[in-house]
Design a protein around this nucleic acid. Structure first.
Length: 519
RNA sequence: GGGCCGGUAGCUCAGUCGGUAGAGCAUCUGCCUUUUAAGCAGAGGGUCCCGGGUUCGAGUCCCGGCCGGCUCACCA
């Protein structure tokens, strides 16, 4: 018999003995007068003398996270929702039967106690127990109490243990929850209505990404898990819902990294009669507002970095490349991105400055040149190489190439560029927004451009969506829309370097054979 | 997919030059009625990730694989 089996068998035996004492093994409920948190908060400053006099009666329950035996007495820590309360059990106070039960308890068991509050010699607020019950037995041993659960894989696969053993993990997810609530409240306050749009879509649109595919049996059709809710939310704007938002999952069938999980949570919102400038202003309000509400501060500590979420820089994408260019002598100018030959010269200079690294591609002379990257794509690639990891403090980067933004409205007088911005914090893209393209004819041309890319093998190029164009044909008011990556914002607010640390159950390869209690 | 790192008791980790598998916590037994990483005395507990190979001998060296982490690429 393996050691683990032996441990389980020991605990089965204890459970049998507990039942033999007349205690139910798995009682149905427990009436408490307080939560641990309430007791700790209410009596934090009550003196030992006052407690000795009033002997406040409490019934409280939680999980046993420490047991310190002393012969015919013992101390235990009862933990509930991240709060800890010491209980003191002595044989002459609880009686023989309950004390026998106490001796059969293990670390990790759920228990309830009844008694009165007092302070120990060392001044610790504790429950002097007069009665005790087992609420559920832990059949498997808890992780080590001092170091917690360190094995990264086990932490993700058995998140419940991670939450039990590592208090800061529990705190991270409480902060995340507050963040989602704060975002929702912020949108509600501003008059947006929350909606839910399809997660299963016949066409996966609204972003450039590879989708997951699934199948509906009764209709016998293939469907895609959504990569973005965008096209549905804009249909709602056409329908007169001038301010809508959705907080929900997107699914992208792509690589996994510290910043990418195949399913991730986005806040996406649309507002009629506005453009991207309005959303820049809104974003600058929203981020510090929700940070303060969720984390209690608008100053984020992220690894070595200290980030002030109240101050935002703004650069156009072209300005940013010039601004963050590493060498003064070869610094390009904004006009250098106006046509492929000049942009090619800038990229050539960059490649020359970075001989060891992979070369950035030069733009093709025309958009239809086979195999060549578009001017827009190469400028964005250059931006990412030059700037992205340097954008530590909150920075809005605006005006993107039209080739990469098939759903965004062009800038007046500059048809090659669209009214779009992205927000970068700590080198991560946190938000993406634009003035929505609402001209159905132009939208059709953009989709056709995408279809051409698709024919050349770009699996992420946007699919033609006739139904969406039909919706635009009924007239969509001028509208601005934005998506905010909730996971990445949660990372910033909880000092989590990996997106997996803010997702309760990140996607992992399935375990071959999880250990269970079968024999 | 490439590079680097890791996988040893339920948990956290050591393991030297290739020579009988170790500690702490947890568990079990005994003692202990104000402790708090409680304490004291004793005991049990191992597919050293898997499969090959080298060797008299492999946790250790070599090859292949599995799983995970970081990183680069990919991913607006």
């Amino acid at each position: 018999m393996s050691f683990e089996r032996e441990l389980i068998e020991q605990r089965r035996e204890k459970l049998r003995r507990i039942e033999a004492l007349g205690y139910p093994a798995y009682p149905h409920r427990f009436d408490s007068t307080h939560t641990v948190e309430q007791i700790v908060a209410a009596y934090a400053s009550t003196s030992a003398e006052e407690l000795a006099q009033s002997k406040p009666a409490v019934r409280v329950c939680g999980r046993l996270t420490a047991l310190r035996g002393h012969g015919k007495a013992g101390f235990a820590d009862l933990s509930q929702s991240g709060c800890r309360l010491q209980v003191y059990v002595r044989k002459d106070a609880v009686g023989d039967r309950a004390f026998e039960l106490y001796q059969l308890l293990d670390l990790g068991d759920c228990a309830g106690v009844e008694g009165y509050l007092f302070r120990t010699k060392t001044g610790e607020l504790s429950v002097h127990v007069t009665d005790l019950s087992l609420l559920a037995k832990a059949m498997l041993p808890m992780p080590e109490k001092w170091h917690g659960l360190q094995d990264v894989e086990a932490r993700y696969r058995q998140r419940y243990l991670d939450l039990l053993a590592n208090a800061e993990v529990s705190q991270t997810f409480r902060t995340r929850s507050k963040l989602v609530r704060a975002l929702r409240a912020a949108m509600d306050r501003r008059g947006y209505i929350e909606v839910e749009t399809p997660m299963m879509q016949p066409l996966a649109g609204g972003a450039a990404a590879r989708p997951f595919r699934t199948h509906h049996n009764a209709l016998d059709i293939d469907l895609y898990l959504r990569i973005a809710p965008e096209l549905y939310l804009k249909r709602l704007v056409v329908g007169g819902l001038d301010r809508v938002y959705e907080i929900n999952r997107n699914f992208r069938n792509e690589g996994i990294s510290t910043q990418h999980n195949p399913e991730f949570t986005m806040l996406e919102f649309y507002q009629a009669y506005s453009d991207y400038r309005d959303l820049m202003d809104l974003t600058e309000q929203l981020i510090p507002e929700v940070a303060f509400e969720a984390a209690g501060t608008a100053t984020a500590t992220f690894g070595e970095l200290t980030i002030d979420l109240t101050r935002f820089a703004r650069y156009s994408l072209r300005e940013a490349i010039c601004e963050f260019w590493p060498e003064a002598a070869s610094r390009p100018r904004v006009e250098d991105f106006a046509d492929p030959p000049r942009a090619a010269a800038v990229i050539e200079t960059w490649n020359r400055l970075h001989p060891g690294q992979e070369r950035l591609p030069a733009p093709a002379e025309s958009a239809s040149a086979p195999g060549g990257a578009s001017l827009g794509a190469t400028v964005v690639a250059l931006f990412e190489a030059v700037c992205e990891r340097k954008l530590i403090q909150p920075t809005i980067i605006y005006d993107f190439p039209v080739e990469l933004s098939p759903l965004a409205k062009s800038k007046d007088g500059e048809p090659g560029w669209v009214e779009r911005f992205e927000l970068y914090i700590a080198g991560m893209e946190v938000a993406n927004a634009y003035s929505e393209l609402n001209d159905p004819e132009e939208q059709r041309r953009r989709f056709e451009m995408q279809a051409a890319l698709r024919e050349r093998g770009d699996v992420e190029a946007h699919a033609m969506d006739e139904d969406y164009i039909r919706a635009l044909c009924y007239g969509m008011p001028p509208t601005a829309g934005e998506g905010i990556g909730v996971d990445r914002l949660a990372m910033l607010l909880t000092n989590s370097r990996s997106i997996r640390d803010v997702i309760l159950f990140p996607l992992l390869r399935p375990e071959k054979s999880p250990g269970t209690t079968e024999e």
